[in-house]
């Protein structure tokens, strides 16, 4: 599904060059739920941005769904983000001027679905996150956890193959954080591949596999779990 080979990414400013990623290698299989951990500034977000085609990289190869994405035009990258990838951000990134319905609608509009199709998808995904009744509310009228659930609905509405989450629980208290991860697990069980960046070991443990990033590289050292922890339900689901 996702193959990164020797990816490196350098940020150049007037003052310094930052090697955010160097010889970064990662393979994520279809249907996996991978948690990426690592200290702040280690390059997790950079990795996620590259994985999600939000950012380009300097060298190495990256194949997404069997397609080499290094040479795609900006528009093609937009299209892939739109169709194959769903994003969940730490700060939710809902559009404050739009109500929940319209927020979830945003990627669907760019997808070019017709009105009936969009309505169906929006309603379904809002139902999935349990917020269908608040469709006409604007983000400011929701709590943080609810906002993040709307963001998840937005990410899911286009039925992406691939869900990327950057510290999705970073702005939430532990109860809400657990709810969000429950939701992600649920989604993963339905077949969506998930890569989630987090610094909470508790939550990371709930993924199939943990990847630890340090200084822009994946390290073998896995402080939280010696081997991927397979949950009984996941086994039952045949993953």
């Amino acid at each position: 599904m996702l193959h990164m080979q020797n990816i490196s990414k350098v940020f150049r400013t007037e003052l310094i060059e930052t090697h955010a990623l160097r010889d970064f290698n990662l393979h994520v299989k279809e249907g996996e739920f991978v948690a990426v951990t690592g200290p702040s500034g280690s390059g997790k977000t950079t990795f996620l941005n590259i994985a999600g085609l939000l950012e380009t990289f300097n060298s190495g190869t990256y194949q997404l769904d069997g397609q080499d994405v290094s040479r795609l035009s900006d528009d093609d990258r937009s299209r892939i983000r739109n169709q194959k990838i769903g994003f969940i951000f730490q700060s939710f990134n809902l559009i404050p001027d739009l109500d929940l319905f319209d927020n979830v609608d945003v990627p669907l509009r760019y997808r070019g679905f017709n009105a009936a199709e969009r309505k169906k998808r929006i309603t379904e995904s809002l139902e999935l996150v349990g917020l269908a009744s608040r469709m006409k509310h604007i983000p400011a009228q929701l709590s943080g956890g609810q906002q993040q659930r709307v963001a998840i609905a937005r990410a899911l509405a286009g039925t992406p193959r691939f869900l990327l989450a950057d510290e999705p629980t970073g702005n939430l208290d532990s109860l809400m954080a657990r709810q969000v991860v429950d939701l992600l697990e649920d989604i993963n069980r339905r077949g969506t591949t998930i890569v989630m960046v987090t610094h909470d070991p508790e939550l990371a443990r709930r993924a199939h596999r943990n990847v630890h990033v340090m200084d822009g590289q994946v390290t073998d050292l896995q402080p939280f779990a010696a081997k991927p922890l397979i949950r009984p339900e996941a086994v039952a689901a045949g993953v």
Binding site: G52, L54, D74, D75, S78, R79, R81, N82, Q83, G86, F87, F89, N93, I95, P96, V106, P107, Y110, R111, R154, A155, G158
Partner: peptide, 16 residues
Amino acid sequence: TKQIGTRRAVGARRID
């Protein structure tokens, strides 16, 4: 700015 970045992230092209 943030909102526009988000739109781009969820698949808006520049032209959009």
